[in-house]
Design a protein around this nucleic acid. Structure first.
Length: 202
DNA sequence: ATGACGATTTACT
DNA sequence: GTAAATCGTCATA
């Protein structure tokens, strides 16, 4: 039986957490008991009040981003572009609003159900979870999960696949996607992926 | 009360 | 490569 990651795993600096999450398994249990899971293969770190690309830039604290201010190990799920959800895992501690965006998974369990959730555009397995909104659609994650404690939730959590973070040479690093509005923060190397993995977003 | 804008995806030229 | 889809949220007034 695979072990769930505990609070202390998440209470680290966002860059460290973004790297440590690579290769671990995100699990979603549907109400009918169906188990959906995938290995985390791509992440982005958001550094909090100083990070102009983060929703908490400048200390912004609103109804929408409130859960980013929770303790490490909570989910921050937001709705954007009028149609998409994206999921983050909060890092560090309460009132330190940093987080890691889950950008892509390599599906491992429940692929049939994921395909049903994703619909016609998901022609191949690599179309299922190769982008932050695709992950949420495939795993049926919406604002209902915003603020959920993933250290105790029965429906959404992370399982430990490996005890140590991947070695640096196995991790690709580059600028974050879709944050061109954030000036110099747009080019900082805060996106991480498993080098060579086919399920990373394009 | 109003308007501008997305931590995206998809389809189309 | 470009553009449409689509609406909750927040800043401004």
């Amino acid at each position: 039986m695979m072990q769930r990651l505990a609070r202390s795993f998440f209470q680290r600096e966002p860059v460290v957490l973004a790297r440590a999450l690579l290769g671990q398994q995100l699990v979603r249990i549907l109400d009918d008991g169906t188990r959906l899971a995938g290995l985390i293969v791509e992440t982005e770190a958001y550094l909090g009040v100083i990070d102009l690309a983060a929703h908490t830039a400048g200390g912004r604290r609103t109804l929408r981003n409130a859960s980013m201010w929770l303790d490490g190990g909570h989910a921050y799920v937001y709705f954007t572009y009028g149609m998409h959800h994206c999921m983050n895992i909060v890092a560090q501690v309460q009132d330190e609003p940093t987080a890691v965006l889950i950008r892509a998974l390599e599906p491992t369990e429940g692929l049939t159900q994921m395909k049903a959730h994703r619909g016609a555009p998901a022609k191949r397995d690599r179309d299922l979870c190769s982008g932050p909104a695709k992950v949420c659609q495939a795993l049926a994650i919406d604002r209902q999960f915003d603020g959920v404690n993933i250290c105790s939730s029965e429906k959404l959590f992370v399982e430990q696949v490996r005890r140590r973070s991947l070695p640096g040479e196995a991790i690709g690093v580059g600028p974050r996607i879709g944050v061109d509005y954030s000036g110099e923060w747009a080019s900082k190397p805060l996106r991480f992926w498993i080098a060579g993995n086919e399920h990373v977003s394009k």
